[in-house]
Design a protein around this nucleic acid. Structure first.
Lengths: 223, 223
DNA sequence: AGTTTTATGTGAAATGGATAACAATGTTTT
DNA sequence: AAAACATTGTTATCCATTTCACATAAAACT
Protein backbone atom coordinates (compact mmCIF):
# COMPACT_ATOMS: atom_id res chain seq x y z
CA UNK A 1 0.00 0.00 0.00
CA UNK A 2 3.08 2.18 -0.24
CA UNK A 3 6.23 2.39 -2.32
CA UNK A 4 7.04 1.81 -5.97
CA UNK A 5 6.67 -1.86 -6.78
CA UNK A 6 3.04 -2.75 -6.37
CA UNK A 7 2.01 -5.64 -4.19
CA UNK A 8 4.32 -8.54 -4.53
CA UNK A 9 2.77 -11.66 -2.97
CA UNK A 10 4.07 -12.29 0.51
CA UNK A 11 5.35 -15.72 -0.38
CA UNK A 12 7.40 -14.17 -3.14
CA UNK A 13 8.72 -11.41 -0.90
CA UNK A 14 10.01 -14.00 1.53
CA UNK A 15 12.03 -15.67 -1.17
CA UNK A 16 13.70 -12.53 -2.46
CA UNK A 17 16.52 -12.48 0.10
CA UNK A 18 17.17 -16.11 -0.71
CA UNK A 19 17.44 -15.42 -4.41
CA UNK A 20 19.66 -12.49 -3.70
CA UNK A 21 22.08 -14.55 -1.67
CA UNK A 22 22.43 -17.24 -4.28
CA UNK A 23 22.87 -14.72 -7.02
CA UNK A 24 25.75 -13.29 -5.07
CA UNK A 25 27.27 -16.75 -4.90
CA UNK A 26 26.91 -17.21 -8.63
CA UNK A 27 28.45 -13.83 -9.21
CA UNK A 28 31.44 -14.63 -7.01
CA UNK A 29 31.82 -17.89 -8.87
CA UNK A 30 32.11 -15.88 -12.05
CA UNK A 31 28.89 -17.09 -13.65
CA UNK A 32 27.48 -14.71 -16.24
CA UNK A 33 24.11 -16.26 -16.91
CA UNK A 34 21.71 -18.54 -15.12
CA UNK A 35 18.45 -20.26 -15.97
CA UNK A 36 15.47 -20.67 -13.71
CA UNK A 37 16.18 -24.40 -13.79
CA UNK A 38 19.71 -23.96 -12.47
CA UNK A 39 18.60 -21.54 -9.84
CA UNK A 40 15.86 -23.95 -8.87
CA UNK A 41 18.43 -26.65 -8.24
CA UNK A 42 20.39 -24.31 -5.99
CA UNK A 43 17.65 -22.76 -3.90
CA UNK A 44 15.28 -25.73 -3.99
CA UNK A 45 12.32 -23.79 -5.29
CA UNK A 46 10.36 -24.96 -8.32
CA UNK A 47 11.59 -23.28 -11.49
CA UNK A 48 8.10 -22.14 -12.49
CA UNK A 49 7.77 -20.48 -9.12
CA UNK A 50 11.05 -18.69 -9.66
CA UNK A 51 9.99 -17.43 -13.08
CA UNK A 52 6.68 -16.32 -11.67
CA UNK A 53 8.39 -14.56 -8.77
CA UNK A 54 10.71 -12.71 -11.11
CA UNK A 55 7.88 -11.81 -13.45
CA UNK A 56 6.24 -9.65 -10.81
CA UNK A 57 9.09 -7.25 -11.39
CA UNK A 58 8.74 -7.28 -15.15
CA UNK A 59 10.63 -9.21 -17.80
CA UNK A 60 14.03 -9.70 -16.26
CA UNK A 61 15.21 -12.52 -18.49
CA UNK A 62 15.58 -13.35 -22.15
CA UNK A 63 13.88 -16.26 -23.82
CA UNK A 64 16.23 -19.01 -24.86
CA UNK A 65 18.98 -17.49 -22.75
CA UNK A 66 17.98 -17.18 -19.13
CA UNK A 67 18.95 -14.38 -16.80
CA UNK A 68 22.02 -12.22 -16.77
CA UNK A 69 23.53 -12.67 -13.33
CA UNK A 70 24.93 -9.18 -13.00
CA UNK A 71 21.75 -7.54 -14.15
CA UNK A 72 19.59 -9.64 -11.87
CA UNK A 73 21.91 -9.03 -8.98
CA UNK A 74 21.93 -5.27 -9.34
CA UNK A 75 18.18 -5.31 -9.79
CA UNK A 76 17.66 -7.20 -6.54
CA UNK A 77 20.19 -5.07 -4.76
CA UNK A 78 18.03 -2.07 -5.51
CA UNK A 79 14.79 -3.85 -4.79
CA UNK A 80 16.02 -5.10 -1.44
CA UNK A 81 17.54 -1.73 -0.56
CA UNK A 82 20.92 -3.31 -0.12
CA UNK A 83 22.61 -0.02 -0.82
CA UNK A 84 21.65 1.54 2.44
CA UNK A 85 22.54 -0.03 5.75
CA UNK A 86 19.59 -1.02 7.89
CA UNK A 87 20.24 -0.61 11.58
CA UNK A 88 18.66 -3.03 14.01
CA UNK A 89 18.47 -3.21 17.78
CA UNK A 90 18.97 -6.31 19.85
CA UNK A 91 16.85 -6.49 22.99
CA UNK A 92 18.06 -9.07 25.47
CA UNK A 93 21.70 -10.15 25.50
CA UNK A 94 21.39 -13.69 26.85
CA UNK A 95 22.66 -16.85 25.22
CA UNK A 96 20.73 -16.44 22.05
CA UNK A 97 21.14 -12.69 21.91
CA UNK A 98 24.88 -13.04 22.24
CA UNK A 99 24.97 -15.60 19.46
CA UNK A 100 23.04 -13.25 17.21
CA UNK A 101 25.45 -10.44 18.02
CA UNK A 102 28.26 -12.59 16.76
CA UNK A 103 26.27 -13.79 13.79
CA UNK A 104 27.30 -11.63 10.92
CA UNK A 105 24.11 -10.41 9.32
CA UNK A 106 26.15 -7.84 7.47
CA UNK A 107 27.86 -10.42 5.34
CA UNK A 108 24.75 -11.39 3.47
CA UNK A 109 22.40 -8.53 3.95
CA UNK A 110 23.15 -4.95 4.49
CA UNK A 111 21.69 -5.21 7.94
CA UNK A 112 23.52 -4.62 11.18
CA UNK A 113 22.81 -4.93 14.86
CA UNK A 114 23.86 -1.44 15.90
CA UNK A 115 22.87 -1.38 19.53
CA UNK A 116 21.85 -3.79 22.27
CA UNK A 117 19.90 -3.59 25.52
CA UNK A 118 19.87 -5.65 28.67
CA UNK A 119 19.25 -5.28 32.39
CA UNK A 120 22.35 -7.10 33.58
CA UNK A 121 24.58 -4.44 35.15
CA UNK A 122 27.64 -6.57 34.39
CA UNK A 123 27.01 -6.21 30.68
CA UNK A 124 25.82 -2.64 30.52
CA UNK A 125 28.36 -0.21 29.11
CA UNK A 126 30.48 -2.98 27.64
CA UNK A 127 30.61 -3.85 24.00
CA UNK A 128 30.26 -7.22 22.33
CA UNK A 129 31.32 -7.68 18.72
CA UNK A 130 31.64 -3.93 18.62
CA UNK A 131 28.08 -3.30 19.76
CA UNK A 132 27.49 -1.23 22.88
CA UNK A 133 25.07 -2.61 25.43
CA UNK A 134 22.77 -0.09 27.10
CA UNK A 135 20.43 -0.44 30.02
CA UNK A 136 16.90 -1.18 29.02
CA UNK A 137 15.78 1.86 30.96
CA UNK A 138 17.37 3.96 28.24
CA UNK A 139 15.85 1.98 25.40
CA UNK A 140 13.27 4.46 24.17
CA UNK A 141 15.74 7.31 24.29
CA UNK A 142 18.53 5.51 22.46
CA UNK A 143 16.25 4.01 19.83
CA UNK A 144 14.71 7.35 19.06
CA UNK A 145 18.08 9.05 18.86
CA UNK A 146 19.42 6.44 16.46
CA UNK A 147 16.19 6.31 14.50
CA UNK A 148 16.03 2.53 14.73
CA UNK A 149 12.72 0.95 13.77
CA UNK A 150 13.55 -2.75 13.80
CA UNK A 151 14.26 -4.86 16.86
CA UNK A 152 15.30 -8.42 17.51
CA UNK A 153 13.64 -9.68 20.66
CA UNK A 154 15.54 -12.26 22.72
CA UNK A 155 14.32 -11.68 26.25
CA UNK A 156 12.70 -14.19 28.63
CA UNK A 157 9.11 -14.84 27.58
CA UNK A 158 7.45 -13.20 30.60
CA UNK A 159 8.92 -9.82 29.66
CA UNK A 160 8.20 -10.02 25.97
CA UNK A 161 4.84 -8.28 25.89
CA UNK A 162 5.68 -5.34 28.11
CA UNK A 163 8.91 -4.71 26.25
CA UNK A 164 7.03 -4.93 22.98
CA UNK A 165 4.67 -2.26 24.21
CA UNK A 166 7.63 -0.04 24.96
CA UNK A 167 9.13 -0.72 21.54
CA UNK A 168 5.86 0.33 19.96
CA UNK A 169 6.03 3.57 21.94
CA UNK A 170 9.55 4.12 20.69
CA UNK A 171 8.32 3.98 17.10
CA UNK A 172 9.70 0.53 16.31
CA UNK A 173 7.81 -0.93 13.35
CA UNK A 174 9.18 -4.44 13.05
CA UNK A 175 10.07 -7.14 15.53
CA UNK A 176 11.88 -10.38 14.93
CA UNK A 177 10.56 -12.32 17.88
CA UNK A 178 12.58 -15.26 19.19
CA UNK A 179 10.38 -15.44 22.25
CA UNK A 180 7.71 -18.11 22.60
CA UNK A 181 5.25 -15.36 23.53
CA UNK A 182 2.62 -14.41 20.97
CA UNK A 183 2.77 -10.66 20.87
CA UNK A 184 -0.11 -8.25 20.71
CA UNK A 185 0.92 -5.22 18.68
CA UNK A 186 -0.69 -2.19 17.07
CA UNK A 187 -1.73 -2.57 13.44
CA UNK A 188 1.18 -0.37 12.50
CA UNK A 189 3.68 -3.00 13.55
CA UNK A 190 4.81 -6.22 12.01
CA UNK A 191 6.07 -9.26 13.90
CA UNK A 192 7.97 -12.22 12.48
CA UNK A 193 8.22 -15.23 14.74
CA UNK A 194 11.09 -17.60 15.05
CA UNK A 195 9.95 -20.12 17.58
CA UNK A 196 12.79 -22.53 18.11
CA UNK A 197 10.95 -25.01 20.27
CA UNK A 198 7.95 -25.12 17.95
CA UNK A 199 10.22 -25.59 14.96
CA UNK A 200 11.97 -28.53 16.56
CA UNK A 201 8.78 -30.00 17.89
CA UNK A 202 6.97 -29.85 14.58
CA UNK A 203 9.90 -31.52 12.87
CA UNK A 204 9.60 -34.35 15.37
CA UNK A 205 5.88 -34.54 14.70
CA UNK A 206 6.32 -34.68 10.95
CA UNK A 207 8.86 -37.44 11.20
CA UNK A 208 6.73 -39.57 13.47
CA UNK A 209 3.43 -39.09 11.73
CA UNK A 210 4.09 -38.35 8.12
CA UNK A 211 6.83 -40.86 8.12
CA UNK A 212 9.61 -40.57 5.88
CA UNK A 213 8.23 -40.94 2.32
CA UNK A 214 8.27 -44.76 2.17
CA UNK A 215 11.18 -44.98 -0.27
CA UNK A 216 9.18 -45.40 -3.47
CA UNK A 217 11.25 -43.80 -6.16
CA UNK A 218 14.08 -42.36 -4.14
CA UNK A 219 14.32 -39.07 -5.92
CA UNK A 220 15.84 -36.00 -4.36
CA UNK A 221 13.35 -33.81 -2.61
CA UNK A 222 13.38 -30.96 -0.17
CA UNK A 223 11.59 -29.41 2.79
CA UNK B 1 1.13 -42.33 4.86
CA UNK B 2 2.11 -43.96 8.12
CA UNK B 3 0.92 -43.99 11.73
CA UNK B 4 -2.50 -43.73 13.33
CA UNK B 5 -3.90 -40.26 12.69
CA UNK B 6 -4.39 -39.87 8.97
CA UNK B 7 -2.99 -36.87 7.16
CA UNK B 8 -3.29 -33.73 9.15
CA UNK B 9 -2.60 -30.69 6.97
CA UNK B 10 0.94 -29.46 7.36
CA UNK B 11 -0.20 -26.02 8.42
CA UNK B 12 -2.17 -27.61 11.22
CA UNK B 13 0.69 -29.83 12.27
CA UNK B 14 2.93 -26.81 12.64
CA UNK B 15 0.47 -25.23 15.04
CA UNK B 16 0.11 -28.24 17.31
CA UNK B 17 3.20 -27.55 19.41
CA UNK B 18 1.97 -24.02 19.84
CA UNK B 19 -1.42 -25.12 21.07
CA UNK B 20 0.22 -27.58 23.37
CA UNK B 21 2.38 -24.95 24.96
CA UNK B 22 -0.47 -22.59 25.63
CA UNK B 23 -2.63 -25.36 26.99
CA UNK B 24 0.11 -26.09 29.48
CA UNK B 25 0.06 -22.45 30.50
CA UNK B 26 -3.68 -22.55 30.99
CA UNK B 27 -3.37 -25.72 32.99
CA UNK B 28 -0.73 -24.22 35.26
CA UNK B 29 -2.96 -21.20 35.72
CA UNK B 30 -5.64 -23.54 37.00
CA UNK B 31 -8.07 -23.04 34.13
CA UNK B 32 -10.48 -25.92 33.65
CA UNK B 33 -12.11 -24.98 30.41
CA UNK B 34 -11.29 -22.87 27.39
CA UNK B 35 -13.12 -21.78 24.26
CA UNK B 36 -11.65 -21.50 20.80
CA UNK B 37 -12.17 -17.75 21.10
CA UNK B 38 -10.04 -17.50 24.25
CA UNK B 39 -7.35 -19.68 22.80
CA UNK B 40 -7.43 -17.58 19.67
CA UNK B 41 -6.66 -14.48 21.68
CA UNK B 42 -3.70 -16.18 23.30
CA UNK B 43 -2.05 -17.83 20.32
CA UNK B 44 -3.14 -15.27 17.74
CA UNK B 45 -4.74 -17.77 15.42
CA UNK B 46 -8.28 -17.31 14.13
CA UNK B 47 -10.79 -19.20 16.26
CA UNK B 48 -12.32 -20.91 13.25
CA UNK B 49 -8.89 -22.15 12.30
CA UNK B 50 -8.39 -23.52 15.79
CA UNK B 51 -11.70 -25.35 15.70
CA UNK B 52 -10.87 -26.71 12.27
CA UNK B 53 -7.44 -27.82 13.46
CA UNK B 54 -8.89 -29.62 16.45
CA UNK B 55 -11.62 -31.20 14.36
CA UNK B 56 -9.08 -33.23 12.41
CA UNK B 57 -8.63 -35.26 15.55
CA UNK B 58 -12.34 -35.78 16.12
CA UNK B 59 -14.76 -33.98 18.37
CA UNK B 60 -12.61 -32.79 21.23
CA UNK B 61 -14.94 -30.14 22.57
CA UNK B 62 -18.49 -29.78 23.72
CA UNK B 63 -20.97 -27.39 22.15
CA UNK B 64 -21.96 -24.51 24.35
CA UNK B 65 -19.08 -25.29 26.68
CA UNK B 66 -15.74 -25.28 24.89
CA UNK B 67 -12.84 -27.58 25.57
CA UNK B 68 -11.78 -29.23 28.78
CA UNK B 69 -8.22 -28.11 29.39
CA UNK B 70 -7.04 -31.30 31.03
CA UNK B 71 -8.57 -33.50 28.41
CA UNK B 72 -7.18 -31.47 25.56
CA UNK B 73 -3.79 -31.36 27.19
CA UNK B 74 -3.55 -35.08 27.68
CA UNK B 75 -4.80 -35.63 24.18
CA UNK B 76 -2.10 -33.45 22.71
CA UNK B 77 0.50 -34.94 24.96
CA UNK B 78 -0.22 -38.29 23.39
CA UNK B 79 -0.50 -36.91 19.89
CA UNK B 80 2.79 -35.10 20.15
CA UNK B 81 4.47 -38.05 21.81
CA UNK B 82 5.37 -35.96 24.81
CA UNK B 83 5.59 -39.03 26.98
CA UNK B 84 8.76 -40.30 25.48
CA UNK B 85 11.89 -38.18 25.36
CA UNK B 86 13.13 -37.40 21.88
CA UNK B 87 16.89 -37.25 21.68
CA UNK B 88 18.49 -34.81 19.29
CA UNK B 89 22.06 -34.22 18.17
CA UNK B 90 23.69 -30.84 17.78
CA UNK B 91 26.22 -30.63 14.97
CA UNK B 92 28.49 -27.61 15.23
CA UNK B 93 29.16 -26.00 18.60
CA UNK B 94 29.83 -22.41 17.56
CA UNK B 95 28.06 -19.31 18.77
CA UNK B 96 24.64 -20.38 17.73
CA UNK B 97 25.16 -24.01 18.60
CA UNK B 98 26.26 -23.05 22.10
CA UNK B 99 23.21 -20.87 22.55
CA UNK B 100 20.98 -23.75 21.52
CA UNK B 101 22.73 -26.04 23.99
CA UNK B 102 21.81 -23.64 26.73
CA UNK B 103 18.31 -23.15 25.38
CA UNK B 104 16.11 -25.46 27.32
CA UNK B 105 14.04 -27.33 24.78
CA UNK B 106 13.14 -29.77 27.49
CA UNK B 107 11.07 -27.26 29.36
CA UNK B 108 8.41 -27.00 26.72
CA UNK B 109 8.81 -30.10 24.67
CA UNK B 110 10.04 -33.43 25.68
CA UNK B 111 13.00 -32.97 23.41
CA UNK B 112 16.61 -32.86 24.46
CA UNK B 113 19.95 -32.22 22.86
CA UNK B 114 21.72 -35.35 24.04
CA UNK B 115 25.00 -35.13 22.22
CA UNK B 116 27.03 -32.60 20.28
CA UNK B 117 29.76 -32.70 17.64
CA UNK B 118 32.48 -30.31 16.60
CA UNK B 119 35.99 -30.33 15.16
CA UNK B 120 37.56 -27.93 17.65
CA UNK B 121 39.95 -29.99 19.74
CA UNK B 122 39.59 -27.54 22.60
CA UNK B 123 35.92 -28.43 22.94
CA UNK B 124 36.02 -32.13 22.27
CA UNK B 125 35.63 -34.29 25.33
CA UNK B 126 34.25 -31.45 27.39
CA UNK B 127 30.63 -31.02 28.31
CA UNK B 128 28.45 -27.95 27.97
CA UNK B 129 25.14 -27.76 29.78
CA UNK B 130 25.67 -31.40 30.58
CA UNK B 131 26.09 -32.42 26.95
CA UNK B 132 29.26 -34.17 25.87
CA UNK B 133 30.99 -32.90 22.76
CA UNK B 134 32.46 -35.50 20.45
CA UNK B 135 34.70 -35.17 17.46
CA UNK B 136 32.85 -35.10 14.20
CA UNK B 137 34.92 -38.03 13.00
CA UNK B 138 32.99 -40.16 15.45
CA UNK B 139 29.62 -38.79 14.44
CA UNK B 140 28.24 -41.76 12.54
CA UNK B 141 29.34 -44.18 15.24
CA UNK B 142 27.91 -42.19 18.16
CA UNK B 143 24.65 -41.39 16.41
CA UNK B 144 24.08 -45.00 15.50
CA UNK B 145 24.88 -46.18 19.01
CA UNK B 146 22.47 -43.70 20.55
CA UNK B 147 19.84 -44.29 17.89
CA UNK B 148 19.46 -40.59 17.24
CA UNK B 149 17.56 -39.65 14.10
CA UNK B 150 17.22 -35.90 14.45
CA UNK B 151 19.99 -33.35 14.15
CA UNK B 152 20.31 -29.61 14.57
CA UNK B 153 22.78 -28.25 12.05
CA UNK B 154 24.78 -25.19 13.07
CA UNK B 155 27.99 -25.50 11.11
CA UNK B 156 29.53 -23.01 8.69
CA UNK B 157 27.63 -23.05 5.39
CA UNK B 158 30.41 -24.55 3.26
CA UNK B 159 30.37 -27.74 5.32
CA UNK B 160 26.61 -28.12 5.49
CA UNK B 161 26.06 -30.35 2.48
CA UNK B 162 28.85 -32.82 3.11
CA UNK B 163 27.87 -33.17 6.75
CA UNK B 164 24.27 -33.64 5.71
CA UNK B 165 25.33 -36.48 3.44
CA UNK B 166 27.05 -38.10 6.39
CA UNK B 167 24.00 -37.62 8.57
CA UNK B 168 21.92 -39.34 5.93
CA UNK B 169 24.36 -42.26 6.00
CA UNK B 170 24.02 -42.40 9.76
CA UNK B 171 20.27 -42.89 9.44
CA UNK B 172 19.28 -39.41 10.53
CA UNK B 173 15.79 -38.61 9.26
CA UNK B 174 15.25 -35.01 10.21
CA UNK B 175 17.44 -31.91 10.16
CA UNK B 176 16.76 -28.53 11.66
CA UNK B 177 19.00 -26.46 9.43
CA UNK B 178 20.26 -23.12 10.71
CA UNK B 179 22.69 -22.89 7.84
CA UNK B 180 22.01 -20.66 4.86
CA UNK B 181 22.78 -23.64 2.61
CA UNK B 182 19.87 -25.29 0.82
CA UNK B 183 20.40 -28.95 1.43
CA UNK B 184 19.98 -31.78 -1.02
CA UNK B 185 18.72 -34.84 0.82
CA UNK B 186 17.29 -38.26 0.01
CA UNK B 187 13.50 -38.46 -0.17
CA UNK B 188 13.59 -40.29 3.14
CA UNK B 189 14.74 -37.19 4.98
CA UNK B 190 13.02 -34.04 6.05
CA UNK B 191 14.65 -30.64 6.45
CA UNK B 192 13.24 -27.63 8.28
CA UNK B 193 15.00 -24.36 7.60
CA UNK B 194 15.58 -21.56 10.02
CA UNK B 195 17.37 -18.96 7.98
CA UNK B 196 18.12 -16.07 10.29
CA UNK B 197 19.43 -13.67 7.69
CA UNK B 198 16.51 -14.30 5.35
CA UNK B 199 14.07 -13.84 8.20
CA UNK B 200 15.55 -10.50 9.14
CA UNK B 201 15.90 -9.39 5.57
CA UNK B 202 12.34 -10.22 4.63
CA UNK B 203 11.09 -8.34 7.67
CA UNK B 204 13.00 -5.31 6.43
CA UNK B 205 11.51 -5.76 2.98
CA UNK B 206 7.97 -5.99 4.29
CA UNK B 207 8.37 -2.87 6.34
CA UNK B 208 9.77 -0.86 3.48
CA UNK B 209 7.43 -2.03 0.76
CA UNK B 210 4.21 -3.06 2.35
CA UNK B 211 4.44 -0.21 4.71
CA UNK B 212 2.93 -0.40 7.97
CA UNK B 213 -0.88 -0.61 7.49
CA UNK B 214 -1.57 3.12 7.12
CA UNK B 215 -3.28 3.54 10.46
CA UNK B 216 -6.89 3.34 9.32
CA UNK B 217 -8.77 1.77 12.15
CA UNK B 218 -5.99 1.01 14.54
CA UNK B 219 -7.18 -2.39 15.62
CA UNK B 220 -4.89 -4.97 17.12
CA UNK B 221 -3.44 -7.33 14.60
CA UNK B 222 -0.67 -9.84 14.42
CA UNK B 223 2.04 -11.26 12.17
C1' DA C 1 20.02 -18.14 -43.85
C1' DG C 2 17.45 -21.69 -42.09
C1' DT C 3 16.70 -25.10 -38.53
C1' DT C 4 16.85 -26.67 -34.07
C1' DT C 5 17.31 -25.90 -29.42
C1' DT C 6 16.57 -23.50 -25.26
C1' DA C 7 14.22 -21.16 -21.76
C1' DT C 8 11.14 -17.29 -20.67
C1' DG C 9 6.64 -15.37 -19.27
C1' DT C 10 1.97 -16.41 -18.43
C1' DG C 11 -2.93 -18.17 -18.94
C1' DA C 12 -5.32 -21.78 -16.87
C1' DA C 13 -5.83 -25.45 -13.58
C1' DA C 14 -4.81 -27.46 -9.26
C1' DT C 15 -3.69 -27.34 -4.55
C1' DG C 16 -3.71 -25.85 0.04
C1' DG C 17 -5.21 -23.12 3.57
C1' DA C 18 -8.16 -19.59 6.08
C1' DT C 19 -12.54 -17.70 7.15
C1' DA C 20 -17.52 -16.75 7.34
C1' DA C 21 -21.57 -18.30 8.79
C1' DC C 22 -24.73 -21.15 10.86
C1' DA C 23 -27.34 -25.46 12.27
C1' DA C 24 -26.83 -28.43 15.93
C1' DT C 25 -26.43 -29.25 20.57
C1' DG C 26 -25.08 -29.00 25.11
C1' DT C 27 -24.85 -25.52 29.17
C1' DT C 28 -26.53 -22.19 32.20
C1' DT C 29 -29.97 -19.50 34.12
C1' DT C 30 -34.39 -18.59 35.84
C1' DA D 1 -38.47 -27.77 33.15
C1' DA D 2 -38.37 -24.26 29.95
C1' DA D 3 -36.00 -20.42 27.97
C1' DA D 4 -31.95 -18.16 26.89
C1' DC D 5 -27.31 -18.57 25.88
C1' DA D 6 -22.76 -20.17 24.33
C1' DT D 7 -19.83 -22.55 21.46
C1' DT D 8 -18.75 -26.36 18.72
C1' DG D 9 -18.16 -28.80 14.21
C1' DT D 10 -18.67 -28.27 9.47
C1' DT D 11 -20.28 -26.74 4.91
C1' DA D 12 -19.47 -23.53 1.62
C1' DT D 13 -16.68 -19.89 0.16
C1' DC D 14 -12.85 -17.39 -0.47
C1' DC D 15 -8.11 -16.33 -1.11
C1' DA D 16 -3.18 -17.17 -1.94
C1' DT D 17 0.11 -19.92 -3.89
C1' DT D 18 1.98 -23.44 -6.72
C1' DT D 19 2.38 -25.90 -10.75
C1' DC D 20 1.41 -27.30 -15.51
C1' DA D 21 1.91 -26.58 -20.07
C1' DC D 22 2.78 -24.05 -24.01
C1' DA D 23 3.08 -20.09 -27.31
C1' DT D 24 6.69 -17.11 -28.06
C1' DA D 25 11.10 -15.51 -29.06
C1' DA D 26 15.84 -15.44 -28.66
C1' DA D 27 20.13 -18.18 -29.10
C1' DA D 28 22.98 -21.69 -30.98
C1' DC D 29 24.06 -24.61 -34.44
C1' DT D 30 24.74 -26.30 -39.23
Amino acid sequence: MSSETLKIPQATAKRLPLYYRFLKNLHSAGKLRVSSAELSEAVKVDSATIRRDFSYFGALGKKGYGYNVDYLLSFFRKTLDQDELTKVALVGVGNLGTALLNYNFLKNNNTKISVAFDIDEAKIGSTMSGVTIYHMDDMEKVLTELGITIAILTVPAPFAQSITDRLAQANVKGILNFTPARLTVPATMRVHHIDLAVELQSLVYFLKHYGVNEVEELEEVEE
